[in-house]
């Protein structure tokens, strides 16, 4: 019940570590995992409006996707933050090639991406992970937990693999011919 209440009240995904901190020495990591697992099962079995999902390095209580159109209709004057095509391109280059410098992003896109990078930094979807060794000591960019949350990913391993994405080999073949 406590885990359920925390998941309901929390704004950000709740991690195993946060739950362990909450209970102090009283419970083990395994007990926390079991509690989450049985809570997940309980919600799946009930098949109600809410579900438990693993997202952004933690767990969250959300509405089920099929109810989204109704909630969107309720919030007629609001919309969620959807990234522009340029922002999606930049954030995907950072996600797949991190740590990456701004000049590497510019090279791939063929256009100046500094403004888009600034916007993504402001949104907290990417962050500076360090500096590249060598002349200029360029900033190295990587994604954040907020990025995982925004795209509903449990970890970076859950990113769609490039080889799963359509048409790349077709383009490659066309250019080879």
């Amino acid at each position: 019940m406590i885990v359920e209440a925390v998941l309901f009240a929390a704004t950000n995904p709740v991690s195993h570590e946060q739950l362990l901190d909450l209970f102090g020495q009283k419970v083990s990591r395994e007990q926390v995992a079991n509690a989450l697992s049985s809570l997940w099962e309980q919600y799946e079995k009930a098949n109600g409006a809410l579900q438990i999902v693993e997202i952004g390095g933690g767990f969250k209580m959300t509405t089920r996707p099929q109810l989204s159109p109704w909630i969107e209709k309720f919030f007629t004057k609001r919309r969620k933050l959807s990234l522009s095509k340029a922002s999606l391109e930049v954030v995907s280059i950072v996600a797949y090639q991190q740590p990456v410098t701004i000049s590497q992003i510019d090279y791939v896109r063929g256009v100046d991406s500094a403004g888009v990078v600034r916007g993504l930094l402001k949104l907290g979807l990417i962050t500076v992970k360090g500096r590249k060794k060598g002349p200029g000591r360029a900033l190295l960019l990587g994604t954040t937990d907020k990025f995982l949350d925004h795209f509903g990913l449990s970890s970076l391993d859950a990113l769609p693999r490039p080889d799963e994405l359509a048409n790349l080999s077709d383009i490659s073949q066309m250019l080879d011919e």
Binding site: L83, E89, S92, A95
Partner: peptide, 12 residues
């Protein structure tokens, strides 16, 4: 990069 961006758009 464009294909990856498309993948992320769907994920979003």
């Amino acid at each position: 990069a464009r294909a990856m961006a498309q993948g992320l758009a769907e994920q979003q």
